[in-house]
Design a protein around this nucleic acid. Sequence first.
DNA 1: TCCATATTTCCAGATTTCCAGAAATGAAGA
DNA 2: TCTTCATTTCTGGAAATCTGGAAATATGGA
Lengths: 110, 110
Amino acid sequence: MDKTLALSALAALGQETRLDVFRLLVRSGAEGVAAGEIASRLAALPNTMSAHLKILSHAGLVRTEREGRSVRYFADMTGFRDLLAYLMEDCCNGAPELCQPVIQAVTCNC
Amino acid sequence: MDKTLALSALAALGQETRLDVFRLLVRSGAEGVAAGEIASRLAALPNTMSAHLKILSHAGLVRTEREGRSVRYFADMTGFRDLLAYLMEDCCNGAPELCQPVIQAVTCNC
DNA sequence: TCCATATTTCCAGATTTCCAGAAATGAAGA
DNA sequence: TCTTCATTTCTGGAAATCTGGAAATATGGA
């Protein structure tokens, strides 16, 4: 992942509505959620939500599939992984115990 | 970690200078870097950098230690771990294979 | 084709963030 | 105490972001 994309991803998640959207899609997994339902579940206007979804999509954090007249959104865990890899680059040089907590946090859930 | 702190952390990292600072500190590990050196290494004014460091600190991403007249900054990997845990909450409900890529990305480096 | 539904795009105003200059604070040494 | 170095705080203007109204686009069905 390049720096520009990492920045857009982090800036995208650093906004309340978009953070809520991403977490909603992470919880929804392979099922995904249609744009309109995302908007109504998070009590936002469809046009505002569309702008947020566009930003998340541009940042590689969500993926879409058209389904009839609605558009279904999914969390893109591959994009998220790339972001993490970028953030933790060279974290272990000489002192693996420093980033050990991070590994444990991610692995223990699954 | 509560949502407000997660938001500040993500917003903090979603800015180029601060992202550079965090990655610099992650690479520097237990050695840390003094505030002035951070500023000069990233070609920023000391006062501007101080504002950025304050934001990162408030977000729980960095930690400080006074050392004579300089202040040494360190990446706070515990705070970072908490952020990840918040982002991945309930990610595996029913479909562990979705977040599998994330686990692999984090574990393979150490 | 015409209509209804779902979503997106365009635009403008309100708010927030970013940055640099000036001044203030904290710590060490003469 | 006075000076110097390192860092932080305060402040204002420029730039970017967030939000909602209005209009446009896309899809499916009558």
